[in-house]
Amino acid sequence: MESKEIITHSAAETQQVGEQLAQRLPKGTVILLDGDLGAGKTTFTKGLATGLGIKQLVRSPTFTIMREYHDGRLPLYHMDAYRLENGGGADLGLEEYFDSDGVLVIEWSQWIADLLPADYLRVSLKRADQEDEATRTVTLTAHGTLFVQLVATLKRPADE
């Protein structure tokens, strides 16, 4: 496992990390997004969408479970597994998304942990503290060999 921490100081910088990452992603990528409410998961996903060339407005999939965006270099499938806490993930046909032509982003993945593929990228977002609303620690951890080099090459937006 290869991990890297990137500190961002604004929502725009958090989006830029997602954008930078998206420009390097191959089809069939699975990204797990971890973080408390308000940690920046949707903000990060907006950056991914921008990096994939998606022009649609990206919104949280909390109430729909899955949102799909098809107008970029690769499709983006944004899933929120929070409501699957009591099961039901196996009925969604996730295997099709794991081997898809796009990028699958899963929030609250712990509720479907037994269904996840061996290769994925975990992105954890954490607020610096309660008083600093903008600063986040973005931790990227490669699971499997596919993302090790990619994680090593990412930089904080101000360092580019």
Rank of each mutant, 00 (worst) to 15 (best):
I54V: 10
H78S: 06
D80E: 08
A90E: 15
L146Q: 14
A90Q: 13
L104K: 02
S100M: 07
R122M: 10
E107S: 02
E85H: 10
L57T: 15
Q110M: 09
I106M: 10
T137E: 10
H143Q: 10
R83S: 06
Q110N: 14
D119M: 00
Y82F: 13
V103C: 05
T64I: 15
D99E: 13
Y82Q: 09
L150Y: 10
E68W: 09
P117C: 03
G102C: 08
A128R: 14
I106N: 07
E85P: 00
L74Q: 00
L150G: 03
L94M: 10
G89F: 04
L94I: 02
M66F: 12
N86C: 07
L52S: 07
D119T: 01
E68H: 13
L150S: 03
T141Q: 15
M79N: 00
K126Q: 15
A128T: 12
I65F: 14
R122T: 01
D132N: 15
L92M: 14
I65Q: 05
E96K: 12
G72P: 05
D114T: 07
T64D: 04
A118H: 11
L76C: 04
L52R: 00
G102E: 04
T137N: 09
L76G: 01
R83Q: 11
F63M: 11
F98Y: 15
Q110I: 02
N86P: 01
E96P: 02
